[in-house]
Each structure stands twice: as structure tokens, then as C-alpha cells.
Nucleic acid binder design. Structure first.
Lengths: 377, 377
DNA sequence: CCATTTGTTAGTTATATTAACTAACTGAAG
DNA sequence: CTTCAGTTAGTTAATATAACTAACAAATGG
């Protein structure tokens, strides 16, 4: 069963490719490849695409991966908008939509929206539910993927819900749930700026500050699934804290915190557009206070990064959420700060997938559970 | 070949155990277990130990792992003293010795000492070199295990040496090299306070500050083998830094830094005994300045831990080096600080193996490369 | 028609399985 | 005390699986 995966992996990597070449790439014998390929052709996972070219000898029969043999759905709910997509086995989106839901949103509402969304997407792409493998759903708040529950979600008020089993029962399909930032991390790893990078950290700044961690090509979640809660890091000056309150980094350098700081120095701060963008604009216009605040923010974000880099020595750090608005100039500024503090500065890149990241990650959260169909290792 | 490992693993875990029970534990069939066990008995890896007891039915033939079928050597050189040990396949030390080397110490000197040490240990334990699998060597400074080289070692002045191949050529045995703190981490994981814990961080404070990281039961080294270089973390007040100089945490809260701080407030600081021990002593005697300095140190160590915990959410944090001198009271004080900043405080324990940790870790660095003999997964 | 490459067929090997057996032992009925 | 049913341990034999090698047929260019 493992060699099937191996063959699929090579097939996807080098497609279109012949059986003989597959044998060379996988180190398996030609008969073995032939047999397994035939099996998978029967199952519809592989197609013969035509005859290839060669200078001498019999011409090869080229094979191709049939990514639409099965489908998955990926969804991301950010507490407000529900993104949904249908994707093939390569994680390529066939079609997608987004829908703003009106509060208050119960679990029941969400399930219904997912159900209806799935129907619409299937119809749109002219596919049937029989081909569906499962649905991945990214949710805001604290989730526990292992037991499929949501511990707490501030935006919806949900607490301790067995979301996965509830959804599976209603949707009639395997469901994978995870935290929204984790899904986005996965998205960038498989389809975005982090493709193929073994050790990477996805840093997200929004209402909160969090990180998704991929080590040795695997998502790292920690012992209590609390890894990446870098909002708790001690960055900048120590401040008095009241009992049970946490998150000094988050409290000072998340989006709301920066808004508060900006309001003190700028006359008109618009709540609708990115603070960082506004600060960058004013700084470029010559506003010294804005430039200073921006530098303070960059610097403290960099401090957080220094802590992560020195501990984990990753290849890549992906900046997302509010951070995507700093532009290439901002990236260079931060890179400059990093070089002051650590000798090994990793690649620093802006997230590439925008609002689709989480939805795409959700697609892959399902595909990851079917390596024998996708050829993922 | 993988089932052999599985059987050995179960055998070591449940020994003494019969073939029938092994089949149950490993989910393999009884004939398969019988065949593989017979093989391994032929090779001397397993022994029949005698007849077991049972209420009904035929009595089982109990099997035991023969840990002395092969041997490994573990060594740790801390820049000053060379610790050497001979160990069996369980990592149990058969005999060990330590020897102070006199500076300057060349690679040649070290090889010679290792060679002579090995001879002495073999003689002492009445074993032969034929049973040796390899030698693990922990070295101070920056090592690259992957290519077996040492990049820089301040205490000996070595730079860019292909230590592994040099040693292998001379000693005639496979050699595994690694950084001293990494070896200690491994030691505590396999034989010390961290046995069986999936996610743990070994924090070492000495001349420098460093950490060994074990995630999912595997050592994590980072992309450039620089993971755990937490001396670079930004802990406490930001300080001006000159170009190419790194390590704010290390500069302020490593052993030498604490000595410097202590000298300012205490009349007689002894360079020979632990600063922390001296500070604890004076604090207990009622010296307020000492108590304050101690608290400052504990607090800043805790800040560093907060950063690691929030990022990695480990089960366990092991305190070693200078930190072992804080005692249970110190541990509680730090735990108190941690609880102020993060909701998920992991176990916090003092390292258990003392100066033997590195040597034992070195033993396991070799054993890890022979899972088919040790049953390690 | 020969050299060369692709793909298949046939037979082999390695490693597991299941089913059925022998071995060894307990305990209770006769 | 003997005997035999019931139980557990370990082995043997036949079978299944999944790979391999060797040999060959198909296809093609020179």
C-alpha cells in the first residue's frame, strides 16, 4: 500500500511520465509499477494520456494523475464571513464562494450554510456528492483537532462543542476541524509562499497574534494543542498584569492595540482600512510620529520573531494578517532589525494567498488524511 | 525488518515475556514471532531465560533481551574534562571514567585519549572491541552533526574540522558527534527526568545559554542546526549592541553574567563554587540585595521560558547547568513567575543525571542509529 | 533485420498469514 | 490414583501478498 503512494507521488511530480520512467524514479521494478498502475487506472486515479516521443525503441505510454477522481470541500469561517470551496485531489479549487453570515451564529446555522453551500458548489461544478472524500472546516477560537471539539470561540460565543461529530452526522461526510490560523498555515505550506519548505513559521497578526508551526514538513501542535500561542510571549517592556490575564505581545502589538496607539498620534484613523496601511501612508507623507510608531511596531514584531528564530531556526517566516500591509519596504526594515539580533536570519516573506489561505488549507487538511489517493508523503 | 524492531521493542518493554504474549503485544501472528525470535536467538540478541508460570495450559518459555550482545562507547569532552563510558544496548553503563586533560588540547590529543580510554574500559569490563557498534562524542561549541564537522569551539580553538571522519579513521569504529548540550538533552530524555516525554525542552545555563529540543520524541535541530540557540532571545530590557554581536539573554543571565552582577553586591564571591548557591545562601541569611538579584535572575530565566512555552507548548522543561542549584524552592518560585504569563505551565524539573548526562546521551546518540538492535522506534 | 526501449508474462523469493497440529499443564470426575 | 476435558504455548504446513528477476513480445528507428 505504501508503494502506491510512492508511485502517485512520483507521477504527480514528473507527470506526464511512462511506466518505465516511474520504475526508475521509484526504484521499483517495472512489473510492480505496471501492476499498481493498472490497479489505479481501474480505480480511476490515473489516466493513460497518449503516446510519448523517443529517439529509439518502443514509444512510452504517458500517464497522468486524474485529480478529479475524488473531491473535497474546504471551508473557513472567520466569525463573520464563511468561505467555501470545492477542490480536486491536487487541491486545485474548482469553484468557491463567500457568504457573510449575520450574528448571532449558532452551530446549527453554520451547518445549514455548509450544507447549502456544498449543494451549490456541487451543482456549479457539475459534480456529485458520491465523489466527496470529506470537508475541512477552519473555525475561529481555540479548537482541539485531536478530539474534534471547539473549546472556546470568542466571536461566536461557542464553548466546549463536539463540532466534528455534530457536523459529520449532519453532513454525512468525514469532517476535519481546526483553528483558522492553522488552516491558513497549511494553505501557505501547500499552495502558497511556503511550498516545500521543511521548517517554517506562519506568523499572524490580527485581533490576536498567533503562529502556525511546520517542522520537518509536519504541522506541530504541542502537547495541549497550544503551540504557536505567541501572543503570550514577553516582548517589550514588562507590564503589570492582573490575575488570569495573559498575552503581553498580543496586548501591545495586535491590530486593535496598534489602532489604539495610532489614534493617539493621528487625527483621523479609519476603522475600516488597515492601520498599518494608514501609518505607512502618513509616514511617507512625512509624519514623524507615524514613522516612529511604525518603527516601534516593526521592531517589536521583530523581537517576537527573534525569539522564534533563535529557538527553532526555521528556513522561512511567513508574515500574514495585518502584516501583509507592510509591503516589501517593511519586510526589509524588519529583516534589518532581525540581523541586529540573530546571526541566522531566515527567509522572510509576505503571505501569498490572501483571504483564500484558510479555505485552501482546509482543503488540504482533508487531503492529508488520504495519502494513498494524493501521493503525499 | 521492521517487525524485528517491533518485537524487540515489546520484548524490552515487557520482559520477561513469552512468544505468545509477544504476538499479542505486537499484533503479529505467533508463527511470525516464533520465526523472528529464533533468528534473533541465533544472533545472540535474545535469550531464553526459563519457564514461566501459569494457572492452566502449557507453561510459557520466557524470553529476555540480551543487552550485552553489542557495546557502545559514549564520551563527553567539555573543553576541560573528558568523560568516557562503555554501555550495553540498553544504554546501561558498564563502567566509566573521567580524565582532566591539560591545555592546549588538539584533535590529535583527544583521539589518543579516546583510544586509550576505550582500551582501558574494554579491559575493565572484560569485553572485546569486536562487540563495539560505535562511539558517540559530545563536544563543546558549534557542531554540525549532519556532516560530522565542528564549526567552532571557543574552549579549544578548533575551527571547521571534519571531526567525524578523522575520528572514524583513527578509531576504526563508526563515530557520532554532537554538541555537548544536545548530548545532555538526549541523556535526560533516555535515562533521566525526561524519559518517555514526547515534547520537552532541556534548558542549559552555563558559560552560555542553550536549549535542546525534543518534539514528537525526536530531536529537533532546525534548518541550519542552530535550533535551541536561545542565548539570542530578547529577554529583559533592550540594550545597545555592536555589529556582529549577539545574545542579549546570554549576555545578562548566563553564569559569567550572574557572577559579574553578584560581585557588585557581595563582598566575597568565590569563583570556584556556584554563584546561584552563594546567592541562595546569602538570601537565606537575610541579605536583601542577594534576594533581589536572585529574583531578578529567576524572573528573567522565566521570561525566556515563557517565550519557549508559548511557542512550543511542551510537556516538560528540564533545568540544567547552573540552574540545578536553585533547589525545589527555586523551581517553585520560577513556576510562580511562569503562571503569571502563560495559562499552560508545563512540568518544570531539575536535570537528574548531573555530570553524567552528556556521556549517557552520547551513548544513545549511537544506539539511535541501530534501531534494529535496540528496538527503539 | 538489428539494436533499443516499453510494457507484459511467468516464475521466484521473502515475509507475512491462517488453520491445524503437538506439547505441556490444571483440575475435576470416576 | 487415573483419566480426560479444557486451556495455553509453540510449531508445522499450506496459503496469501507483494515484491523481485528473467525472459519475451511489441513497437520503432536506422
Amino acid at each position: 500500500m505504501l508503494n502506491r503512494q510512492e508511485i502517485l507521488h512520483a507521477l504527480r511530480k514528473y507527470a506526464p511520465i511512462s511506466r518505465a520512467d516511474l520504475a526508475k524514479k521509484t526504484q521499483l521494478s517495472r512489473p510492480c509499477v505496471s501492476a499498481l498502475v493498472d490497479e489505479m487506472i481501474q480505480e480511476g486515479l490515473i489516466h493513460e494520456i497518449g503516446i510519448g516521443d523517443s529517439t529509439v525503441g518502443r514509444k512510452p505510454i504517458l500517464l497522468e494523475y486524474n485529480a478529479t477522481a475524488y473531491l473535497v470541500m474546504g471551508a473557513l469561517f472567520d466569525g463573520n464571513v464563511l468561505h467555501m470551496a470545492l477542490a480536486d485531489l491536487k487541491g486545485e479549487l474548482l469553484c468557491h464562494e463567500k457568504k457573510k453570515l449575520v450574528s448571532p451564529i449558532s452551530g446549527e446555522t453554520l451547518i445549514q450554510e455548509l450544507e447549502e453551500g456544498l449543494s451549490r458548489l456541487l451543482e456549479q461544478s457539475q459534480m456529485t456528492k458520491e465523489k466527496m472524500l470529506g470537508i475541512g472546516i477552519g473555525l475561529p477560537g481555540i479548537t482541539r483537532k485531536r478530539d474534534g471539539t471547539i473549546s472556546y470561540s470568542p466571536s461566536t460565543g461557542w464553548m466546549d462543542l463536539p463540532v466534528q461529530t455534530d457536523f459529520e452526522a449532519r453532513l454525512g461526510l468525514p469532517v476535519v476541524i481546526d483553528n483558522d490560523v492553522n488552516m491558513m498555515t497549511l494553505g501557505e505550506y501547500y499552495k502558497g509562499i511556503g511550498i516545500g519548505v521543511a521548517n517554517q513559521i506562519y506568523m499572524y497578526v490580527g485581533t490576536g497574534i498567533g503562529a502556525g508551526i511546520i517542522l520537518h514538513h509536519q504541522f506541530y501542535r504541542g502537547s495541549r494543542e497550544a503551540a504557536g500561542e505567541i501572543g503570550y510571549m514577553i516582548v517589550g517592556a514588562i507590564q503589570p498584569i492582573s490575575k488570569g490575564e495573559y498575552g503581553i505581545f498580543e496586548r501591545n502589538y495586535s491590530t486593535p492595540a496598534i489602532y489604539a496607539k495610532a489614534r493617539k498620534i493621528l487625527p483621523h484613523v479609519c476603522e475600516e482600512t488597515s492601520v498599518i496601511r494608514q501609518l505607512v501612508h502618513h509616514a511617507e507623507q512625512g509624519n514623524v510620529q507615524a514613522r516612529h510608531l511604525l518603527d516601534e511596531v516593526y521592531q517589536h514584531w521583530a523581537y517576537g520573531m527573534v525569539n522564534m528564530i533563535s529557538l527553532l531556526d526555521p528556513d522561512l517566516l511567513i508574515l500574514s494578517g495585518e502584516m501583509v500591509n507592510i509591503g516589501e519596504k517593511g519586510v526589509q526594515r524588519i529583516q534589518h532589525f532581525l540581523a541586529e539580533w540573530v546571526p541566522m536570519v531566515p527567509d522572510l516573506k509576505l503571505a501569498a494567498l490572501g483571504e483564500q489561505a484558510g479555505m485552501i488549507g482546509a482543503v488540504f487538511s482533508v487531503l492529508e488524511t488520504f495519502p494513498m489517493l494524493t501521493g503525499q508523503k
